[in-house]
Amino acid sequence: MKRREFIAASAALLVSPRRSLAQGTRRRVGFLAMDVVEPTVQKAWLEGLRKHGWIDGRNLIIEYRYAPSPDRLPAFAAELVALSPDLLIAPNPPAAAALKSATASIPIVFVAASFPERLGLVQSMSHPGGNITGLAAVAPGFVGKLIELLREMVPTASKIAVLVNPGTPGHRLIVAEELPQTARNLGVALPIVEATTVEELDVAFASAAAEHADAISVLGDALTVNNAPRVTALAAKHRLPAIYLFRLFATNGGLISYGPDLADLFIRAGGYVDKILKGAKPSDLPVELPTKFELVINRKTANALGLTVPPTLLAQAMEVIE
């Protein structure tokens, strides 16, 4: 090599090590979801990463894949696995199941997954085992709490329809194990109405009204969350007081919502990402439960239904929409 070329090459190495190092140490994360993630949740997810020094586009590359329907999840999961990411994120149980089926080696963190142990995602909450861990959405018995809150809002309700998606494993568990016990404990009838598609949502609400339900509890999943305005509009159309799992429904005209603070769960997910990217194994990281819950009441909707919000509920509410 000529002296001039050697000096030029040496100079280039001296002035650009920071850039080369930054490019070389970027970690790759795959994110598999059903439909586009709500803006507040997306913001919380990135904030949780930033708290631990991980910034998309700087030292992190996040690959997003959005499956338009559950049957497309396996293909998108395989696509992400083929990219050989350092970590995979699943914001709901179906995505977590698809990723778990796609890889037994790449670490997976689920967020807001209901009943992860009972659905076989982990061996146990304290010792997940395998390559997957994360944050649960609710604990067993939570549906009973929803029904109690709805009855507090509508004290005369003796028949409360429950909207479930039979394609959602967590819903099947609730129907088989929790609803019979809740009905006995609270002395109410809990007829089931089902929907697996957007079109079936209309039929489900019409069925609840035809059965003369006094109110309805809408179990959360990708179908209802991604169609929240339609769901709350159907409840209003059939004049059914309804309770939902996430505040998104109350802000879209739903009567009342009570459930985990999703933003907080996604912020906390950043801690799992940080630990795993620094060498921790998912099997050694216990599954955590929500620590923050949100009760949101839409008083405008209550007035439209001729309901008076009890002071006890108002006192518990994190937000009251006038």
Rank of each mutant, 00 (worst) to 15 (best):
R151N: 05
N59T: 02
A98K: 05
N185P: 00
H52M: 04
A161Q: 09
L21P: 08
D284T: 11
L190V: 10
V162W: 06
V225P: 09
I55T: 09
H238P: 05
I106S: 15
V143D: 03
G24T: 08
D86I: 07
V122S: 09
P74M: 08
T308I: 11
T133A: 03
L99H: 09
L201D: 04
P155L: 13
A195E: 01
M1R: 03
P74W: 00
G271K: 12
L87N: 10
S257N: 06
L314E: 10
R3L: 05
G24P: 05
A33N: 13
L88D: 11
L240W: 09
R230Y: 13
A82H: 04
G170T: 10
F110Y: 13
F6A: 02
A157P: 10
P68I: 04
I61Q: 13
G170Y: 01
E199S: 11
L83Y: 02
G170W: 01
L277D: 03
M318Q: 12
A233T: 06
S126F: 09
I147Y: 12
L73A: 03
A78H: 02
A9I: 02
K292T: 15
A113W: 08
D214I: 00
N92G: 14
I243N: 06
R172K: 14
R28I: 11
P68W: 03
V37F: 11
L87D: 06
D202M: 02
V109L: 15
L201Y: 03
L314T: 13
P290V: 09
Y64R: 09
V162I: 07
A315F: 12
S207F: 06
M318K: 12
G254I: 15
A112I: 15
T301Q: 08
R172I: 13
Q123L: 14
A75W: 07
F110I: 04
T25R: 14
R72W: 00
D202Y: 07
I89T: 10
P166V: 05
